[in-house]
């Protein structure tokens, strides 16, 4: 088990290096750079800068150096904990990320828990009662949920929240708590706002999770080992949980890693609609404005989170399934 963990940890390093290069290149791909849009703005206002001034401006941001050098200085700073400066927000990236990534993680993880809390019981029910009325009803509801884009759902929830309850449900805090220091009341206010992004982000994954669990469980339900256990006299509910469900759940553990990126990108769109102070909206703005340090840092952090998520799911799977542990 220890060598397995060590192997997986070492394997993550080249992956991270490779992805950091791709991230850097992708950020550079669109024409123009961080000074382009301010220059355009100045030109439209009639201010003409000499080419020498432009050169100086670019040199100030290290933009005159060749790409590999730019990459190296970015990545070394990143590794030592300095993520650079955001020209867009005029603040260090570390500050911006620090105040946002916690909310992103919180929303993503609670959405994940929501997805499972709904999808697993529903999946078990529709597998055990295959082709029953309940099976069809659940499947229909889930597919509607799958087909509804999350931003649309967010808009609908906002509309009804305002129409019926008279509350504005954008953001993660009510106005009076937005800048208040943390207290019990503020935490309560936060939780009362959290459920909306949780449901909106989580609902998209619920249908597929339920259908996958249903299919997995149907595969397992009539396996010989289940019949052996039934012939042994194991009580029905214990039989279901201990044998087929226990094994049908394994593939889920391995999808934690895949789910995280989906949830994070789903979260970005929902956050823009709901006006949440998470990484998503800031990432989008940074990308539009070619704020390379901010965008790069967000992308890298999300990548690291995803890889860590994969790692955790691999380790959980090895813990849960002896066949993987012993390979």
């Amino acid at each position: 088990m220890k060598t397995y963990i060590a192997k997986r940890l070492l394997g993550a390093i080249p992956t991270l290096i490779f992805i950091s290069m791709i991230v850097f290149v992708v950020i550079q791909l669109p024409p123009g750079d961080i000074v382009t849009s301010p220059l355009d703005r100045m030109q439209s206002q009639g201010v003409e800068l000499s080419s020498e001034a432009i050169q100086n401006l670019r040199a100030q941001y290290n933009l005159d150096q060749p790409l590999p050098l730019q990459y190296l200085s970015w990545i070394t700073n990143f590794v030592t904990g300095d993520m650079g400066y955001s020209y867009l927000f005029n603040r260090p990236v570390n500050e911006l990320v620090g105040e946002r990534i916690g909310y992103t993680l919180l929303i993503t993880l609670s959405a994940l828990l929501f997805t499972w809390a709904v999808a697993i019981p529903a999946g078990v029910y529709s597998a055990v009662r295959q082709y029953s009325l309940g099976d069809y009803a659940l499947t229909t509801v889930m597919l509607v949920g799958l087909a509804t884009p999350s931003f649309l759902l967010a808009l609908i929830v906002m509309y009804f929240g305002y129409e019926w309850f008279g509350i504005s449900i954008g953001g993660l805090f009510s106005p009076e708590y937005r800048d208040a220091p943390w207290s019990l009341a503020r935490a309560g206010d936060f939780l009362s706002h959290l459920w909306i992004p949780m449901v909106v982000v989580g609902l998209g994954g619920t249908a597929s999770t339920m259908r996958i669990l249903r299919a997995n469980l149907l595969d397992e339900l009539n396996k010989p080992y289940v019949i052996t256990a039934r012939a042994k006299g194991v009580k029905p509910l214990k039989l279901l949980v201990k044998y087929p469900l226990r094994i049908a759940i394994n593939p889920f553990i391995s999808t934690i890693g895949f789910l995280l990126p989906t949830l994070i990108s789903g979260e970005a769109i929902v956050s823009i609609v709901l006006n949440l102070p998470t990484t998503g909206p800031a990432l989008v703005q940074a990308l539009i404005n070619q704020d390379m340090y901010l965008a790069g840092s967000f992308l890298m952090l999300l990548t690291i989170l995803t890889i860590v998520g994969m790692l955790i799911s691999d380790l959980l799977l090895a813990w849960a399934d002896p066949r993987i542990r012993y390979e």
Partner: peptide
Amino acid sequence: SMVFQEPMTALAPVY
């Protein structure tokens, strides 16, 4: 009690 035909699959793999 019953002994089944296929010992390779008659036992659950995770216990």
